[in-house]
Amino acid sequence: MIRLPSADALLGRVSPLWRGLAAIVLLCALILAMVESRAGILRSGTEIRLATAPVDPRDLFRGDYVILNYRISTLEPARLDGDKSFERNQTVFVRVAPGADGLAEAKGVYLARPPASAGGAVLEGKVVSTAACAVNANGDQDCNAGRGAIRVAYGLESYFVPEGTGRAIETTERKRLEIVAAVSSSGQAAIKRLLIDGKLVHQEPPY
């Protein structure tokens, strides 16, 4: 019977130099794939406008950044189309459409991806809380209105900005700040532009 050499034996015949080069090539390929995936979203994704409020502006190890909290981050399933019961860490799909002010409003939240409405998009997110305070008419959380809301993260909550501008953005009134995001057909989203008073402050390069 012919015995084939094991994978370990074959690997042992490859010099450490070639193994190191192969590892570097594989790592570079993975990085390029991630960069191209994000670039594809920015290049061809559906644009949506998001109202948001920034929070913590500084990471000393990585430069300026803002933590963003969106109007669509807190959802009340009872008032929306779709499913009504959710668990923490579940993947959900949030259907949004432009409101009267042109900013994205949540229309439904689902466990399975629904079709997007005309002029809208569907974002994939993850449930981070199932007992959040409801949101009042001003867009602020109001625990007196109950804790029947869920909190959803979309991967858009951290945004790095040019060094020295984080504090200025962090102290900007929420109603003046707007994010334009691109959403792929699969629901993945990426921040494309940041505006204050409708004027461009920072635009994300495609690469």
Rank of each mutant, 00 (worst) to 15 (best):
E204F: 12
G125T: 05
T91Q: 13
K126Q: 13
R79M: 13
A53I: 13
L32Y: 14
G146T: 06
S6R: 15
A132T: 05
P205E: 06
S15E: 07
I169R: 14
L68D: 08
G146I: 03
V96M: 07
A181C: 06
D101F: 08
G63V: 03
L10A: 08
R62W: 08
I72M: 11
V35P: 10
S6H: 12
E124H: 00
L123R: 02
L200T: 09
P98F: 06
A22C: 07
A153G: 00
R95C: 05
M34D: 15
A39G: 15
C28S: 14
V109Q: 05
P5L: 11
L75N: 10
V55Q: 08
A121G: 00
K126H: 07
V122K: 00
L42S: 12
E76D: 15
V25Q: 02
T130K: 09
S44L: 08
A51D: 14
S185H: 02
D101K: 04
L156G: 11
R88C: 04
G45S: 11
I48H: 01
V96P: 07
Q188K: 12
L30S: 12
L195H: 04
A53E: 14
V66Y: 05
G102R: 07
L177S: 04
Q188P: 00
D197V: 00
I72C: 11
L200G: 12
L103G: 00
R193S: 04
S184R: 03
G102L: 03
V180H: 13
I150E: 01
S186K: 02
R176I: 01
L156H: 11
P114Y: 07
Q141L: 01
E178R: 15
E157D: 15
T74S: 08
S73R: 13
K107W: 10
Y159E: 03
A168D: 14
F86Y: 10
E124A: 01
L194C: 00
A132E: 06
A29N: 04
